[in-house]
Computed example of a mutant assay.
Amino acid sequence: MFEEAAFPGALPMLAKPELAQHAAMPQSHTLRGEDIVYVDNTPYRRHPRGGGLVALTATVANRVVIAKTAMVKDHAVVVGNVRLFDRVVIEDRAIVADGCTLRGDSSVGGDAVLRGSVQLSHQARVDGAAHLSGNVKLQHYAHVRQGTLVGGLVIH
C-alpha cells in the first residue's frame, strides 16, 4: 500500500500504533473510505489508476493515470487522457489536460497550461505563465517559463 522510499517523510493513514507517538501529524483520517497519506503536513489520497498521490485540494479526473511515484499537489488540475509516469510533479495552479504524457523527473507548476499531445521528459519543467499545446515535446532539462508554444516542436 505505501512505500516509504517513494515519498520520504510521508506517513500512511493507518500507521502502527507504536509509531503514532513519534509522529507530529495526524495518523487517522478517512475521506469517503480512502486512505489518506500525509507529506509535509499536506493530506493526499492515492489515485485509483496507478496509485500516485493527489492532494485533497487538487482536481484529477478518474481516467488520468498517475504512477505510484508521481504527485499532483496544491490546486493543480489534471483532466482528460493524461498520463503521469516516474517521479512527475504537477503543482501550484497548473493545468494539464487532453492527451499529455509526462515522464522522468519532469514537472509543471505556476499557472502553466499544457493541452493536446504535449510530452515532457528528462527533467523538463514548465511553469510561470507558459502555455503549451499541440505536439510539443520538451526534453533534457528544457525549461519554459512564459509564452506560448504550439504545434510540432521538439525542445532539448
Rank of each mutant, 00 (worst) to 15 (best):
M1R: 03
M1I: 06
E4C: 00
A5N: 00
A6K: 00
A6E: 03
P8D: 03
P8N: 00
G9N: 05
L11V: 14
L14S: 13
L14Q: 11
A15G: 09
P17A: 14
E18P: 01
A24E: 11
M25V: 14
M25K: 08
M25P: 02
P26C: 03
Q27L: 12
Q27W: 02
T30L: 07
T30S: 07
E34S: 06
D40T: 10
N41E: 14
T42L: 02
T42P: 01
Y44S: 03
R45I: 15
H47I: 12
G50V: 10
G51N: 08
G52M: 07
G52D: 06
G52L: 06
V54S: 03
A55V: 06
T59M: 04
A61D: 15
A61K: 00
A61E: 14
V64R: 00
V64E: 05
V65T: 05
V65C: 03
I66P: 03
A67F: 04
T69D: 01
M71D: 01
V72L: 07
V72G: 06
K73S: 10
D74Y: 04
A76N: 08
V78S: 09
V79S: 12
V82C: 09
R83V: 08
L84H: 01
F85R: 08
R87D: 05
I90V: 15
D92Y: 01
A94W: 01
A94V: 04
D98T: 00
D98E: 14
C100N: 07
T101E: 15
L102R: 02
R103C: 10
D105N: 12
S107C: 09
G109W: 06
L114P: 13
G116N: 08
L120F: 06
S121W: 02
H122F: 04
Q123W: 11
A124C: 11
R125G: 07
V126P: 04
A130E: 13
H131N: 07
L138E: 09
H140N: 15
H140L: 12
Y141I: 05
Y141N: 14
Y141P: 07
A142P: 10
R145D: 12
R145G: 10
G152N: 13
V154L: 06
